[in-house]
Design a protein around this nucleic acid. Structure first.
Lengths: 193, 193
DNA sequence: CCACATTCCGAAACAGCGTTGCGATATGCT
DNA sequence: AGCATATCGCAACGCTGTTTCGGAATGTGG
């Protein structure tokens, strides 16, 4: 008595998630509807509910994907003998790149840009792993007795704000990386004195 | 040939906007529906369309209200003989207070947290006025030849990021103001050297 | 080899959303 | 007084997320 085997495997799950991210990226959060995601992959709307339970489940999965990506990239950063520069470079080359290349994931995972922000609780664990990677980078910088968690928050705040502003098209075209380095460098320098 | 006089005057308009802000504040952006706003004020849904044209029009009006509030408060800040401190205090006492007291307006006006972010174009003018007030504060600080607009952007980015983080409950309770001052102070100090 | 029990999928239905067309209503001018 | 006119409230439309339900597909017991 085995019953009918499920047709929607892990491959369909990834295809659905890809389509969801693509939709938000291309047409904004309002374009993310269960019907369009299903149609884009070529399955019925029921498949989305079989795999992710609900539209909210889809959003949570996007958040997990975002934090997973972010955490891996921070961890993969090279460590030089200049911890302060390492931190700034991580901000520019990881956080900025992530936000620019995957704005939909940035908005969902980092900014909690969803109809129901309490859903963020469901990817808190994955987020914490990425957070720990950032803290590890901050820990290497001498900050004159400042609380590491607190500094990490402040650094993250500047990164998040810069990313938000850049995604809104408010940074001079072509100058984005320089301005990021200027801002992040100034914050770290100001914290060290 | 005068026709029937309109029943929904400026007073109803303000009542609708108040109710809209209250709804978003209390239950999140998803709770903002034309029907609920109308019911809350005691008029029909048609009134919302008579006054604001659409739900999007309501969102734009909330954005205008936010920027108007922000601009006035920045302009009203006292100028002391320490321009750098004035800037930091403006960030803490204006931007932070605004975000904490009116999170819905912050999310709409500043973060463009709407289904269709292109609506932000419609309150760009009011936003520019508030922006000019911030630039005026930055201009007084000696920044060693840095571009004023650019520094204003960086300062705004940190404020926006800190506000976003605080609204998500990620700052130690009771320590918020001190952390804001620490972060903003560090950025300004780092920019001045 | 067949029929059954079991499981899942897809189409259709439901409530709620933003929005709009239409009949009824309430006013000011002639 | 009666007509012209502009507004309002109700009901409908197409869309949304979600659920229900009948049919289809499979591994197993006879």
């Amino acid at each position: 008595m085995a019953g009918r085997p499920r047709e929607h495997d892990e491959q369909t799950a990834r295809a659905l998630l890809d389509e969801a991210e693509r939709l938000v990226e291309a047409e904004g959060a309002a374009a993310l509807t269960v019907r369009r995601v299903a149609d884009g992959v070529g399955v019925s709307t029921r498949a989305v509910y079989s795999v992710y339970g609900s539209k909210d489940g889809l959003l949570v999965a996007l958040g997990v994907r975002g934090f997973d990506m972010l955490g891996r990239r921070v961890a993969a950063r090279p460590r030089t003998d200049d911890p302060a520069a390492d931190l700034v470079e991580a901000g520019v080359m990881v956080f900025r790149r992530f936000a620019v290349e995957h704005p939909a994931l940035f908005q969902i995972a980092i900014q909690w840009a969803m109809p129901d922000p309490t859903l963020a609780r469901q990817f808190r664990d994955v987020g914490w792993e990425a957070w720990a990677e950032l803290v590890a980078l901050v820990e290497r910088v001498d900050l004159g007795g400042r609380d590491v968690q607190e500094v990490a928050r402040e650094f993250h705040a500047l990164c998040e704000g810069m990313a938000a502003i850049e995604l809104r098209g408010m940074l001079a075209a072509g100058e984005e990386e320089r301005i990021w380095r200027d801002a992040l460098g100034a914050l770290v320098a100001g914290l060290r004195r």
